[in-house]
């Protein structure tokens, strides 16, 4: 892994709460999340599916739709709380200063418009360019993300692109306006292994060449190990552990993280690692009162802790660079 000097934080999420008010009850998809991303840093956000990673990222762009709502916390971008901005101010940030790519690249592109016109649209919105100028810039952008024959490719419709090509188009679109932060939500999950590696390399190049900060969201620890400077582990709507990548893999603290790392598949074996931790993610409507991992936690029994099912552990530092949400690392836990 390359070491990079990480600058001041550009994004600081504190105590973020995003809930969905459904007929069955309130789904606390994000329930007190804290995250910090430094300038030029690649932060990995891992956790099994349904733990609230996508909702966290959609909250940053304030794209949560009904019946969801951001009910608490703050999202500071360069110190300014995005939750205080008007919708119009927020629009000028989306796709311009913070942009996103998604899991299903082909489905994330509009089937009735050409790749070129969808990239050009970013220039039309954020830089007031005309279609023709936008198209010329789109060609340059496609060349930058490694699409051969870009002149011809801008005329292609999404269904004419492979998954890898479509993800490159998405990346070109996301980078078009030169954002400071790129949020990549499972960017390689839908792609073949070789294409995955190419996309990961591309994201690393983007950070190294352009200094873009990146949040990589994934359920694949292998990807995190390969690309991230720092990792946050998410479980049932909260961050349970955070550390720099090397530390997290060498010395994981939280029983959940340990379980994840212990179950990384061997090379070539693409089995889902989550199957290996016994038990299931709790229903985010009726969350257990104490630690959310308690029903699946064996370490709790081994250490003879009883407070786990009664009290909710806080995220506390084991040292300056490493935080964990678990009573095992707290003085005087019973």
């Amino acid at each position: 892994m390359t070491t990079t000097t990480v600058g001041d934080p550009i994004l600081q999420i504190s105590s973020l709460e995003t809930h969905f008010f459904t007929r069955d009850g309130v789904v606390k998809a994000v329930d007190g999340v804290d995250l910090t991303v430094g300038k030029g840093e690649i932060l990995g956000l891992v956790g099994e599916s349904g733990c609230g990673k996508s909702v966290t990222s959609m909250s940053v762009l304030r794209l949560i739709q009904n019946p969801g709502e951001i009910v608490g916390g703050s999202i500071r971008f360069h110190g300014e709380d995005l939750l205080d901005l008007s919708e119009k101010e927020m629009r000028s940030i989306r796709g311009d200063r913070i942009s996103m790519i998604f899991q299903q690249p082909v489905g994330s592109l509009n089937p009735v418009f050409t790749a070129g016109s969808q990239i050009s649209e970013v220039y039309e919105i954020h830089e007031g360019l005309k279609k023709k100028e936008g198209n010329a810039r789109a060609v340059e952008m496609l060349q930058k993300v490694g699409i051969p024959d870009a002149e011809r490719r801008i005329k292609a419709y999404p269904h004419e692109l492979s998954g890898g090509m479509a993800q490159r188009v998405m990346i070109a679109m996301a980078l078009a306006a030169g954002p400071e932060l790129l949020i990549a939500d499972e960017p390689t999950t839908a792609l073949d292994v070789t294409i995955q590696a190419q996309i990961i390399d591309l994201m690393r190049e983007i950070r190294n060449d352009l200094g873009t900060s990146i949040i990589v969201i994934t359920h694949d620890l292998g990807i995190v190990a390969e690309i991230a400077d720092r990792v946050a582990v998410m479980y049932a709507g909260e961050i349970v552990e955070e550390a720099d990548t090397k530390t997290l893999f060498a010395d994981p603290k939280h029983p959940y993280t340990k379980g994840l790392i212990g179950s990384i598949p061997l090379a070539g074996d693409r089995r889902e690692w989550l199957d290996v931790i016994p038990g299931r993610v709790p229903n985010l409507i009726d969350l257990p009162g104490g630690c959310r991992f308690a029903p699946r936690c064996r370490a709790r029994e081994e250490a003879g802790l009883t407070m786990c099912t009664e009290q909710r552990p806080e995220l506390t530092g084991v040292n300056d660079e490493h935080t964990v949400r678990c009573f095992l690392y707290q003085e005087g836990a019973k």
Binding site: L109, N110, V122
Partner: peptide, 23 residues
Amino acid sequence: DYVRTARAKGLRERSVVLKHALR
């Protein structure tokens, strides 16, 4: 998904609906 993309781009809601979704 592509409607989400259109919103994430910074398009105003009217364009999201009348351009990206309606077509």
